[in-house]
Amino acid sequence: MRLIILDNADVVAEWAARFVLQRVTQFAPGPGRHFVLGLPTGGTPLGMYRKLIQFYKEGKISFKYVKTFNMDEYVGLPRDHPESYHYYMWNEFFKHVDIEPGNAHVLDGNAPDLVAECQRFEDLIQEAGGVHLFIGGIGPDGHIAFNEPGSSLVSRTRVKTLAYDTLEANKRFFGNDISKVPRQALTVGVGTVMDAKEVMILITGVHKSLALAKAVEEGVNHMWTVSAFQQHAQTLFVCDEDATLELRVKTVKYFKALSEEHQKMIEGVPVDEQRVIH
């Protein structure tokens, strides 16, 4: 497990985008050889998407041979609702880059058979050969995707009822009316993300600091689902200073001492060599 501590959320966004750029470039995707990305929504990754769009416009990266799988989507929310994750992904990312529509996969929360939709999504990931890099954010309660506290750590893509905290946190997007927040979502499981070759989790802000501490300093715990990634072979937590407030000084010092090493990960060092940076 790596913990990369950066100055602030802007630097986290830039770092994450450069990491994606580096991974996609080294993979050298082409016809019949797609790089497979898992993608999150929400406020934390927004800056990363903007940077990636900038890289695309500068000709540094193409998404022509990239397949994407989004983590989650609300159930029953119209696709063009401003809070739907389809809407977010289209407006914040897809429409700005050259990704092929058939390669951009977002769970359909309006599918007539939600269970079948979840299975279809898992099958699609299988067909694509698995996810090379899954990017995620977390909630203040340590949930990854919509794997709320108490979710099974080997769960697969499924329908999930949202926790009260999540409804409360999200009501601001629905006119402050909690009754308008969808109560269910489709989400990839913790196990689905664990299957990815690499996982990068972005954590910024004071309000996420307790979750970060639970994720990296305490044991694997299904009440803080993101802690499962301690057991993933190639996991990267990328956070800002604010998010470290609940960490022990020695934890922060240890990882900050490694920051020069970590910087190599976004600077052209071949992926194979990066495996020994820890």
Binding site: R79, H86, Y87, W90, N91, F94, E100, P101, A104
Partner: peptide
């Protein structure tokens, strides 16, 4: 913002992208 048109009408590109999966 981009403007998408087809068959004499203004199109919703989000719908084209997700449902028709057309470029």
């Amino acid at each position: 913002e981009d403007l998408w048109i087809r068959d004499g009408k203004i199109e919703n590109p989000e719908q084209v992208f997700y449902v028709e999966q057309q470029e």
